Amino acid sequence: MKGVLIVNLGSPESPTPKDVKPYLDEFLMDKYVIDVPYLLRALLVRGIILRKRPKESAHAYAKIWWDEGSPLVVLSERMQKKVQTLVNVPVTLAMRYGSMTIEKGLQELHDKGVSEVMLFPLYPQYAMASTLTILVKAEEIRKKKFPQMTFTNVTAFYNKPDYIKNLADSIQKHLAAFPYDHLLFSYHGIPERHIRKTDVTKSHCKIDGSCCNTPSPAHDFCYRHQCYETTKQVVKLLGLTEDKYSLTFQSRLAGDKWLEPYTDIEIDKMPAKGIKNLAVVTPAFVSDCLETLEEIAMRAREDFEKNGGENFLAVPCLNDDDQWCQTVGNWINDWAE
């Protein structure tokens, strides 16, 4: 019997330092997130970051928390329920971090008699700290707990025509009533070294402005290329000229060089360039979360207005959009036939 496990990032149980701390510990101690030797990672995370970050992050989570719980979890659950009505195989939701574990999701499918699993990371673009860590963790659990199961992994869908159309249609719908000067595509940042580590050719990715446009097998696993490609295809459907949009990367950590340009720095400059009405879309996420609701819709808006901007629109993620859920349902049905 076939079944589907949809996996998103995860969330603390509540917006309190007590619950945020173990969540951040699990997340930041993941070797695919902070990819340094264990002892150095433990020193950095448990000796430095977790001394201050839980309180700061809890404050940020509290600003976006819903009565039903974490927005990312609630929106992912709504999507899963809609998709379930569109397919004839069981669809379960899990999170890479937190209490909604991948093991629980696989156990739920196992209890329903599922032996063939479509493993579906909810990330359009491939990255070590998102897609890869889900695939590795799921495989570890499968080998240990569910050896009779088989996986079909959903690859990055950054350029699939139906996903691109869903994204473009959603953006267009939200821009219809907003007289914007500029549309900013803000993707989650990653360290540049992650790009080089995932380069299967070991030589193509130079992050020099040309490698992302030069065909290569490396592009199947290159987050930077896939971000630019998503943007290029959406922009084409929207019919935007080059002066009407740009691409940046958000959420960097101090210390290493991360992908540039940086969202916060570019947004701060925009009012002085005559951009008074800014719309921001975040296509690295399919579900709204801390990075979209607090970092962009709150902090970036505040910075934009402080620097002379007048109107700011944070375009929602696809979330449980009907067209998007139908697309996911179609992918599942094609696989399950």
Results as ranks from 00 to 15, higher is better:
residue 271 P to W: 00
residue 209 G to P: 08
residue 195 I to S: 08
residue 267 I to R: 00
residue 221 F to Q: 09
residue 249 F to H: 11
residue 193 R to W: 08
residue 298 M to F: 04
residue 183 L to M: 08
residue 189 G to A: 10
residue 272 A to F: 03
residue 154 V to M: 14
residue 199 D to H: 10
residue 170 S to K: 12
residue 177 A to K: 11
residue 188 H to W: 10
residue 207 I to V: 14
residue 265 I to F: 05
residue 238 L to H: 04
residue 167 L to T: 10
residue 258 W to H: 12
residue 195 I to P: 01
residue 239 G to H: 10
residue 187 Y to F: 14
residue 249 F to V: 07
residue 292 T to V: 11
residue 218 A to P: 01
residue 257 K to R: 15
residue 243 D to A: 11
residue 202 K to N: 14
residue 211 C to D: 12
residue 231 T to M: 03
residue 244 K to F: 07
residue 245 Y to M: 12
residue 211 C to T: 13
residue 216 S to Y: 14
residue 219 H to A: 08
residue 263 T to K: 05
residue 272 A to G: 15
residue 297 A to R: 06
residue 208 D to K: 12
residue 247 L to F: 05
residue 201 T to V: 07
residue 234 V to F: 07
residue 205 C to M: 11
residue 211 C to K: 10
residue 193 R to G: 05
residue 259 L to W: 07
residue 246 S to I: 07
residue 180 Y to K: 03
residue 265 I to P: 02
residue 153 N to A: 15
residue 241 T to G: 13
residue 289 C to W: 04
residue 197 K to I: 05
residue 197 K to H: 09
residue 249 F to E: 04
residue 160 K to D: 15
residue 196 R to D: 09
residue 272 A to M: 08
residue 290 L to Q: 00
residue 209 G to W: 06
residue 254 A to I: 13
residue 268 D to H: 06
residue 218 A to L: 02
residue 220 D to I: 01
residue 176 A to S: 14
residue 196 R to W: 14
residue 286 V to E: 05
residue 200 V to D: 13
residue 280 V to N: 00
residue 252 R to E: 12
residue 164 I to M: 09
residue 174 H to L: 00
residue 265 I to E: 13
residue 158 Y to F: 15
residue 187 Y to E: 04
residue 213 N to C: 07
residue 201 T to L: 03
